[in-house]
Computed example of a mutant assay.
Amino acid sequence: MKYPKVIYLFLSVSLFQNCNQKEPFEASNALHTIEIKKDFLLNQVNELKFKATDTIDLERPGNPPLTTIQDVVFSTESIFLLDRKHGLLKYDDAGNFLQSIGKKGEGPDEYLMPTAIYLNEVENVALIADWEKMVVTSYDLEGNFIASSGKIPGRPISFYKEGDNLL
């Protein structure tokens, strides 16, 4: 071949010109919408110990002002909310603030950047993943410090169960 660079350039330019001729992708709103009707929720409520509500106002007077919510976990009697600024907050099922659990700081019983909560009511323990310190800190459900893990390899961002193991 006498002109390989010219042929390569011509093919490249023609390919790039054809890339812009495709129709833009339009995502359907139906793919991103999950609709849960109140009737569906009410069918399950008979087995639960709390009443169904449409909303719970956590920003009522007297409650700490929420900033960035990282995670929410529901127990049979409480709502645990992980806020970036205030840390782990405990509310009753009506949305009344009960207490802060733990506090921000660098001590072994403190957290810097909490990212996830795991709640085990049977063992009365709440685990908090700390992305900044690379540890998992545990508290009982009344807010008392239990223990803090050693530094783990990688930054914890969530908890999930696989069989009997918590990962």
Rank of each mutant, 00 (worst) to 15 (best):
P65C: 01
S28Y: 08
T76P: 07
E142C: 07
L41D: 07
S158F: 12
G95C: 05
N18P: 08
S100M: 02
V73C: 10
H32E: 09
N144T: 04
D109P: 01
A147K: 07
I152A: 03
N124E: 14
M113I: 11
T68E: 10
P4M: 11
E162C: 08
F50Q: 11
M113Y: 09
I69Q: 03
D57P: 02
K38I: 15
A94L: 13
H86L: 15
I56E: 11
S149C: 02
I79W: 00
E110M: 05
E35F: 10
L81F: 12
V135G: 06
E26P: 05
Y8H: 12
D130A: 10
L58A: 05
I36P: 09
K151L: 03
A116C: 03
S158K: 12
R60P: 00
G154R: 03
D164K: 12
S78P: 09
L98W: 04
F145E: 00
D71Y: 02
L31W: 12
G154A: 09
A52R: 09
G163I: 12
E132K: 14
T76H: 11
I152H: 00
N18D: 10
T68C: 08
K161V: 14
Y3A: 12
P153N: 06
T67G: 08
F159D: 02
K22W: 05
P24Y: 08
G150H: 09
L98Y: 00
G105W: 02
V13I: 15
P4V: 10
G143R: 01
F97G: 04
L82T: 03
S100C: 04
P65R: 05
F10T: 15
S158V: 09
Y91K: 03
Q17I: 15
K151N: 04
D57H: 08
G107C: 01
K51W: 07
G95V: 05
G107Q: 00
V73T: 06
L15W: 11
N20C: 14
